[in-house]
Design a protein around this nucleic acid. Structure first.
Lengths: 235, 235
DNA sequence: ACCTGAACACCGTTCAAGT
DNA sequence: ACCTGAACACCGTTCAAGT
């Protein structure tokens, strides 16, 4: 008994009354909501509320939630493509790759939920295709063999996405867990008993000092060095 | 009306009747269930069924689900520590790091759900502490400065976890999505129109040929090379 | 001291019904 | 052609009640 009358019918209209529903308008709104408060994990019901529409209406435009999220993800890849087009044409391969990496890092900070959820996916979407083409063109122009080009591409792209996705995963954890994890180095490792953990204790100050950006930069440079070695070996 | 009488009271006992509930027995069972069918995402209710116990009983031993999952994660780190202790003592730093990386890769394949969910976390658990100590000891013994030791440690550990976590995320997607993503290279990129995507099309065969293991190995070697360069620069 | 069970506030998704 | 709304089968978690 008591059929649960907590919130009778007070849903609907938090945002606009009812925009016409298209894949584009849905992706637009999803991205807007995701940017507004970054701890939000994009539920169909919340998106429905936000658009003044029944949550099940989205299934008319996307097969399922995964499909919708990947469409939003490709939109973010679109921002990456736009930044690519803004680059000067006379850049060397190393600068091109470095700039792309820094842009990806910035986007991951801006869209943590999307990056943490999608960084390991291969969608084949239009913007992803553009980026793959850009990277393969840049790398093959160095004179590397086809095998080397592809290996360097995969090594660079996978590592870049992994690094950005990892940073995004931490941000997407929510403020409470994010801070707990971020403070772990000073909270735990800097104060470990030195009889049992002499090395951790000896490096306490340095462990708390190193930044995520510094680590990211070092990883990218190491990968670029590896590619450069292959290029000069060829020449 | 009709209060939803689909499954009246037929829960309980899928596994043992009722083992005594301790943090250890709960972690044991969670790991066992997770290994049995790898698409399972460890719900409190399912774990309750599996142990013949009400799902809310776990909150007597763990603050919340995140707490429980991190305890299981530290158990997996324990397997890594065990492999560490099996290593011969006379190994050089490069072999030690390489072996650790390969062990992590194997563990990520065996526990995709845990790796994909926890690879970005810093728990400070006992086994994590042991691995951190091992890596810092190994790296500082090369003669690197404290700053260089810590930077190399973070670069290596973060990249290793990111790479393993990414591979695990793909495996944890479930068989349907996993295959869809895995085939993307041959399904999409190998057959792109060559006027619009000449580089992707030219590298179609090589793109489908490169393996995850090959990529992982190349990334690890690039990172070890970067550390080796720092070591020889010092000497 | 420890566990149960109802309850609360959520999820994604299907499908018959409406317009 | 497109959207609604009830319904189904799930979630994590709290808290008063039981033993």
């Amino acid at each position: 008994m008591a059929t649960g009358t907590s919130r009778p019918a007070a849903r609907r209209r938090t945002g606009a009354r009812s925009v016409t529903l298209t894949p584009e308008s849905i992706v637009d709104k999803a991205l807007e909501v995701l940017e507004r408060d970054d701890t939000f994990s994009l539920s169909m019901r919340r998106l429905g509320d936000e658009m003044g529409v029944d949550p099940t209406a989205f299934y008319r435009h996307f097969r399922d939630k995964d499909d919708l999220v990947l469409a939003v993800w490709d939109r973010v890849m679109g921002e990456q493509v736009e930044l690519l087009h803004q680059q000067p044409a006379d850049l060397g391969w190393r600068e091109r790759l470095k700039t792309l990496a820094l842009n990806a890092w910035t986007l991951a900070q801006r869209h943590p939920m999307l990056y943490s959820r999608c960084f390991a996916r291969v969608t084949g979407g239009p913007n992803e295709r553009e980026i793959v083409e850009y990277l393969l063109t840049t790398l093959s122009a160095t004179g590397l063999s086809r095998e080397e080009t592809v290996l360097c591409y995969r090594v660079f792209a996978d590592s870049l996405l992994s690094a950005c996705g990892t940073a995004a995963s931490v941000l997407a954890l929510g403020p409470d867990l994010r801070d707990k994890d971020a403070n772990a180095w000073s909270r735990i490792y800097a104060v470990l008993p030195q009889e049992q953990y002499p090395s951790a204790r000896a490096h306490g100050a340095e462990l708390t000092g190193v930044t995520e950006e510094e680590i990211f930069d070092t990883v990218i440079e190491a990968l670029l060095d590896r590619i450069e070695a292959a290029v000069t070996r060829r020449a």
